[in-house]
């Protein structure tokens, strides 16, 4: 497995996984966000040639994470499916095959904006769909897809932003990669899906930014 970095958050010990996930060892739960399965199929529908290899790779990566952490629960923080057009045969087959290998895993999905458009996942996948936000029973935090604009009472984990950070060096030197944005009240996860883009975020006061290149994690600053 690739690198992981342990942080303390809300009194708990969490592991950031370089493959763009968060693992909570105490509850054996993996959190990911924004898989956007079926995005490639959406492109194919309008004649843009993209294959499903990224879906296959994402399934493999997820499987490896589950194997290595021995997680018993997977929580997806929104945008599981990209669009209705993505509910195509190749995508369905890949996801069904994957699920067959992890039948014991409990999977929850907090519905994101894309899920509302594309509809809930195929019932055969046995994914429990939850509203945004959803409280957790084991702690005070909430599970969200959309990070709220105003202040909220409870701390939360969220996705949606596909956060990326761009570092500028001298001259034209620059580096851009996915990241976690963590403050006392929230952690925004990077998008798990490979065929997703990045949206640059700014480093605000009181926040920590953790960069990942898929293999290593580096805290900013």
């Amino acid at each position: 497995m690739n690198e992981s970095l342990t942080i303390d958050w809300q009194g708990e010990s969490l592991q950031l996984l370089a493959d763009r996930a968060v693992f909570w060892p105490k509850e054996k739960t993996i959190y990911i966000a924004d898989t956007h399965f079926g995005k490639a199929a959406t492109f194919r529908k309008v004649g843009i040639p993209v294959s499903e290899h990224t879906t296959m790779e994402d399934c493999l990566r997820l499987g490896t994470l589950i194997d290595n952490t021995r997680a018993e629960k997977l929580v997806i923080l929104g945008d599981f499916l990209h669009a209705r057009a993505g509910r195509s045969q190749p995508v369905r087959n890949l996801l069904f095959n994957w699920r067959d290998q992890y039948q014991e895993l409990s999977i929850d999905l907090v519905r994101g904006n894309h899920d509302l458009q594309s509809g809930d996942p195929w019932p055969e996948l046995g994914i429990t769909c939850l509203p945004d936000p959803t409280p957790t029973k084991k702690n005070t935090w909430e599970l969200r897809h959309l990070p709220p604009d105003e202040e909220v009472d409870r701390p939360f984990l969220a996705g949606h932003l596909h956060p990326g950070y761009r570092l500028h060096g001298k001259g034209r030197d620059s580096l851009r990669c996915p990241c976690w944005v963590a403050s006392e009240e929230r952690i925004i996860l990077p998008a798990f899906g490979s065929f997703t883009g990045l949206k640059n975020i700014k480093h605000e006061k009181g926040e920590k930014i953790f960069l990942t290149n898929g293999k290593e994690i580096q805290e900013l600053g």
Binding site: K170, D173, N213, K215
Partner: peptide, 23 residues
């Protein structure tokens, strides 16, 4: 003004260097 380094840096070294320059 444009200077770049040729010696191979690891990714994390590069990030460290650039964030130091940023500061």
């Amino acid at each position: 003004s444009l200077r770049s380094q040729v010696s191979s840096e690891s990714w994390s070294d590069r990030v460290k260097r650039m964030s130091q320059q940023l500061e």
